[in-house]
Design a protein around this nucleic acid. Structure first.
Lengths: 156, 156
DNA sequence: ATTTAAGATGACTTGTGGATGATGTTAACA
DNA sequence: TGTTAACATCATCCACAAGTCATCTTAAAT
């Protein structure tokens, strides 16, 4: 479903988001913690930094941190630098002219399924993935979940 | 979403299913009609034959035909020879221990989306894809569609 | 039987994602 | 200001999907 690199990116960003705010995460421990080849991970993180998802600090005691608030980073943003995402999912039968007007037999069903996948990556945020132990709240729509999460954090 | 080869396979099988029943389809015209490299397509069709999806006839005036009725060939059957399909979609965060009991934060939502994709490939058949212009019937569940297809065939 | 047209098959090429190792560049700090 | 520990970058390697080419095998047709 996702390329190896994109999955690395996702795991790394979630890990970074779980650290205390403002704390820098270095490649070596991150590589060890997640079991990802160090040099390869370094490149991947660099690409995420260029995409604005992460912020890199060079030099001694450098490292990586989130480039912006976790609630504003969608999974799509993390994945996009590493694979082509076709917003309009292309026809299963490879017909370029396949559209709502001139659909192939499976057009509607496939578009339905396929758009749910892209919607998942567009609406789920790193904050969602970095949250504590999951609850039944995952079944609720996104907006309701965000409100509940804030309330829950206040309570604790 | 699908590998190039799997998409070739899908398009080829649908094309063959659309030919008059029992008619043999040869690689050269098929390759020309679908814009797929001939020798590569030949190998792909051969693999489908070994999988029982197609039946190959060698020698002069040979060719390919469906290996069984189009209603019994699921998209999954056509795709499976060419890519690993993980029935249990693996955790987005790569946690091997991620399950319903010990889920990662996005487990439920991701599993929901992801299982819809696999369900699509498991329940959609070549008969569905080879059908004429689509109707509202695409919204109906699989079992109902299958019964309707049989009835329609009897009628014609 | 021979010819011929079809699929079967194996060797090879090419492009790319994933991965490794070595080296350059930056900035903290003694 | 030199050392050091971090990120940045480059060259290379490997495996595999995709595609090409040539040859073998089969079976219909003459």
């Amino acid at each position: 479903m996702l390329s190896q690199t994109a999955e690395y990116a996702l795991r790394a960003v979630v890990f970074i988001a779980q650290q205390p705010l403002g704390e820098l995460v270095q490649v070596a421990p991150l590589s060890a913690a997640l079991g990802i080849p160090q040099n390869y991970l370094a490149k991947t993180l660099h690409q995420l930094a260029r995409a604005g998802v992460l912020r890199s600090t060079r030099g001694k005691s450098g490292g990586f941190s989130l480039g912006r608030s976790a609630v504003t980073i969608r999974l799509h943003d993390v994945i996009a630098p590493f694979e082509v995402i076709d917003e309009r999912p292309h026809c299963l039968l490879g017909r370029p002219e396949c559209s709502a007007k001139n659909p192939c037999p499976a057009h509607e069903r496939w578009q339905g399924v396929s758009s749910q996948v892209t919607a998942f990556f567009r609406t789920t945020t790193i904050a969602d993935m970095a949250a504590g132990p999951p609850t039944a709240s995952w079944a609720r729509p996104f907006a309701a979940r965000a409100r509940a999460d804030v309330a829950g954090r206040r309570r604790s």
